[in-house]
Design a protein around this nucleic acid. Structure first.
Lengths: 201, 201
DNA sequence: GCGCAGCACATTGCATGCAGAATCCACACG
DNA sequence: CGTGTGGATTCTGCATGCAATGTGCTGCGC
């Protein structure tokens, strides 16, 4: 079932299953070569991650995101991730620092969107707080198309990469306050960009 | 199934099913008068709330909480709830303010533990952020015995009630900054008490 | 032509059977 | 007396059938 859940999650994040799309158990079961039971279980788990909406007796749909949802989500990230970065500063391993470094290398835009997710996930995991991790999981899942808004803007992309590099050096220096500040700037910057690009109502 | 999940959740929070206790599907199915299928589904959902640990092919247990887990949990709350209070200040309805007021009335210690949960839940819901709500749900579930540590201390209990009352008046005055500050003090106070009462290691 | 009732179909929710994994216990061996 | 191995037993994970709920369509009345 974990396999089915991960495949489903990936299909939603990748936009293969689009927001608003009805998720019929039988169809998904055939697609993944299982029965309806593991599908139901996966859908319930993904509901807990905010990716899917399940209504009793009416089935599941991929959750839709409007501008306010995305804004909402980034505000929660702005609360959690700076704290994660601060905690990570004193705990992150050299191996993870290497991985973060590698993720800062140049790449195509599509590649960067995926790398960005990995980058942030490594930091949250390095914070070593199980609760923080589940809270982030609940808060951060969103189809990549919604993030691509940020990554297709030249300046915003450059800003992000700069923040990432500075984050790595702050973490390497074990400077919790700096890591926290950079992460906060990084996310608040994204919110500001969102508000410019996609003004409220 | 929602019914089964809520009953299970309540049984865990109430301490009826104790931390570490093995949760066998068949036994729970009999207890709730259903089959194993809805039980499995409920367990998976509760895993997303951090109340249960499910290991593939090995079954589910009520999650155990040690001092560090509780500390961890309160640190995440310290990040989320002040922001929730700030948002709630401009959105909370008069009806909810009344309910909060009512929850501040004197009551037995047991009653206060339950009321405290309701009090905080109302504020988080009043914040009107779906993501914040699920993040809090992921972060805040814990059997009540662990909270009773706080509520059985005379001074800590008085402090908490004072914070609650000041929160209500800040919210009523629509003072976001004050509500946020009071909530932060409330939770950091709890953390400080935890560190005094149950020192690290 | 429009709206509503009733029916047929699609889909979910739950119970149950079965295969396979994990656990437990007895017994043999060092 | 402790340790390891084999088999019986328990339990989970999944597939499937069936009942119940929801949906959409057809045809009838207006």
């Amino acid at each position: 079932m974990a396999r089915v859940r991960d495949l489903l999650e990936e299909a939603i994040l990748a936009g293969e299953l689009q927001p608003g799309e009805r998720l019929r158990a039988e169809a998904l079961a055939q697609r993944f070569g299982t029965s309806r039971t593991p599908i139901r279980e996966a859908l319930l788990q993904l509901e807990g991650q905010g990716l899917v909406q399940v209504e009793p007796n009416r089935g599941a749909v991929v959750r839709t995101f409007d501008r306010d949802d995305v804004h909402d989500l980034y505000e929660v990230r702005a609360l959690l991730e700076p704290a994660a970065a601060a905690r990570a500063a004193s705990r992150i391993t050299d191996a993870d620092l290497e991985r973060l470094d590698a993720l800062c290398a140049d790449a195509s835009v599509e590649e960067q969107i995926v790398r960005n997710e990995t980058f942030h996930r490594i930091i949250v995991e390095a914070a070593g707080s199980a609760r923080l991790e589940v809270a982030m999981r609940a808060a951060s899942g969103i189809p990549r198309t919604f993030r691509s808004i940020f990554w297709h803007d030249e300046r915003q992309r450059a800003d992000s990469m700069m923040c990432h590099r500075r984050l790595v050096s702050a973490l390497r220096a074990r400077d919790a306050a700096l890591a926290e500040a950079v992460m906060r700037m990084h996310i608040l910057g994204a919110i500001a960009f969102l508000e410019e690009t996609w003004p409220n109502r």
